[in-house]
Write a protein that binds this DNA or RNA. Structure first.
Lengths: 175, 175
DNA sequence: TTAGGTGCAAACCTTTTGCTCTATT
DNA sequence: AATAGAGCAAAAGGTTTGCACCTAA
C-alpha cells in the first residue's frame, strides 16, 4: 500500500490578473465566479493546503495573507465552492466540517478517532475488491469512497505525532 | 432466550429483570451499564429502529413509550452507547447526527449514478481487507464506511433494493 | 447506602444570516 | 452604474453541561 502526503499546489502571485491565480482560483473563474481579493486568497490557501483544514484553520491561514478577511466570508466561500464541485466537504468527526480540493486525486482516509489525525492512503487491492463487488451487483464502478475510523494499536507507544491537520479534536474530547 | 444478533421488536417488563429486554438493552447490561427505565426505553427504540433516526426522532419515539424522558438523556445515552460500540453515528448531512445499532450488520451503499437508487450490501471480504489495511497502518479498525458509485453493466437487469432510508446521503457524510 | 443517572435550562459551538457598505464586472 | 460580495454581529440550530434531585444496584 502506498501512503501519500498529498499533492502540492504551487502558487503564483496573490493578486491581479488570472495569470498568477492559484489552480483553485482558476477553477473559480471557469465557473464564472466573481473573483474578489478574498476569494483569491482563500482559493490560494485551499490550493496550497496539504491537509483537510476546517473553516477556522482556513480563516487563520487566509488571515495571514490578508487580514481583511472575515470568517463569514470563509464560510460563504467554502460553501460556494462546494456547490460548484471545486471543494469537497468531509466530516471526520470533531464537529467541524473539513475541506479538501476535489482535484486532489483519489485516496482513502483513515481517521484516528482519538486525535483526529487523518492518514491518507491508496490501496490497489481495495480498488480491485470494490470493482469486483460492484460487478457482482451488476454495475461498473465509476467512483467510490472509503473512510476508516481507527484507534492506534496498543503495543506501540508513540508519542502524539504531529497532527496532519491544524485541527485538534473536538472541544469536548469527543472523537 | 438467547437471541440472534438480528433485531427483535418486542419488549417485556419495564422493571428490573433482563428477560424482556431489547437486544440493545442486553448489550448495555453486558457492558455493565446501569439500566434505568429511560435507558431501557431508548434501547428498545433503537432496537426497533430500522432506519437511522436522529436524536430528535429518537426522543419522539421514546417519549411515546415513556413521557418522562428528556432530550438531554437521549443525547447522553446515545453518546454513551456510541462509546461502547453499541451504536454507530452517521452523518448524512443536514447537520444532525443519526444513529444506528452496530448489530444491524455493517452494510455499504452502492449508488446508481444514473437513477440515484441506493443498493445496500454486506461483504465480509471487504471488512477483512479494511481491517487489514488499518492494521498495517498501526490501527485497530473501529468503524468504517464505503460508498460505491456505479453504472449498470450493459444487459443485466437486476432488481435493486429499496433505499434503506428516507435520508438522502450526502456525498461527504461521515461514518 | 451510594455512585451514577436524569431533568431543566443555560451554556457552548459551529454555521448562517440581516443589514449596510464596498468592490467587481 | 448595477449587482454580487464582504464585514460585523446577532441569530440559529444542534449538542453539552452545571446543579439539585432521584434511583438502580
Amino acid at each position: 500500500m502506498v501512503m501519500s502526503t498529498k499533492k502540492m499546489g504551487r502558487e503564483g502571485a496573490a493578486s491581479g490578473d488570472t495569470v498568477g491565480d492559484s489552480p483553485i482560483a482558476r477553477l473559480c473563474v471557469k465557473h464564472g465566479l466573481k473573483m474578489t481579493g478574498q476569494r483569491r486568497v482563500i482559493a490560494r490557501v485551499l490550493s496550497e493546503a496539504e491537509d483537510h483544514p476546517d473553516v477556522e484553520e482556513l480563516y487563520r491561514r487566509a488571515s495571514e495573507l490578508d487580514s481583511r478577511i472575515s470568517v463569514a466570508t470563509v464560510y460563504r466561500t467554502v460553501r460556494l465552492l462546494e456547490e460548484k464541485g471545486i471543494l469537497e466537504r468531509r466530516d471526520f468527526g470533531g464537529g467541524r466540517a473539513r475541506y479538501e480540493a476535489s482535484e486532489n486525486g483519489h485516496h482513502y482516509h483513515l481517521i484516528d478517532i482519538d486525535s483526529g489525525n487523518v492518514i491518507e492512503f491508496e490501496n490497489d487491492e481495495l480498488v480491485g475488491l470494490l470493482a469486483k463487488i460492484a460487478a457482482e451487483l451488476g454495475f461498473d464502478l465509476m467512483s467510490h469512497r472509503a473512510e476508516l475510523f481507527g484507534r492506534r494499536t496498543a503495543p506501540e507507544k508513540k508519542k502524539d505525532a504531529a497532527p496532519e491537520d491544524g485541527n485538534r479534536s473536538s472541544p469536548t474530547g469527543r472523537a
